[in-house]
Amino acid sequence: MSEGGANGLWLIAATFLVAFLLAVYPLPAWLSWARPEWVALVLIYWVVALPQRVGVLAAFAVGVVVDILEGAVLGQNALALSVVAFLALALYQRLRVFNLWQQAAVVFMLLGINQLLVQWVQNATSQGAQTLIFLMPALMGALLWPGTLILLRQLRRRYRVS
């Protein structure tokens, strides 16, 4: 880890802040299921890019913030995002050699697991979705993965975060 790495913490924090804002941005009712899982997307990017810095504990902390923002049961997103970070840590070497759309498929799986865990907790507290529509945010996230990846990679290289 170089000095540039220690300085890069603000960039990681800033990308998560933007993801939080996008996660609560009001959408019309008919679009509400189409909101991609921004926070999980950004988290997956940083875990794959910097597995030695962003890991399960960071994911847990980010998840707690998301819970507070959404007013969800505390720990719901923390649980889901920790598991996603754990899986991403296990997968990152393979993920890096895939092309963009293969990566998107894996990201869809990861986001789907995230949604599934969130749904489990929600249904345990009796207010989840009734149909498979809860996978919609995962699908949107996977479609946006190439764009997110390219944008975040540009930022990371410009500011030499490693």
Binding site: V56, L57, A59, F60, G63, V64, V73, L74, G75, Q76, A78, L79, S82, V83, F86, V121
Partner: peptide, 10 residues
Amino acid sequence: LVVVLALLLI
């Protein structure tokens, strides 16, 4: 550990 922590929190 983290999963247990999250479940405890829930």
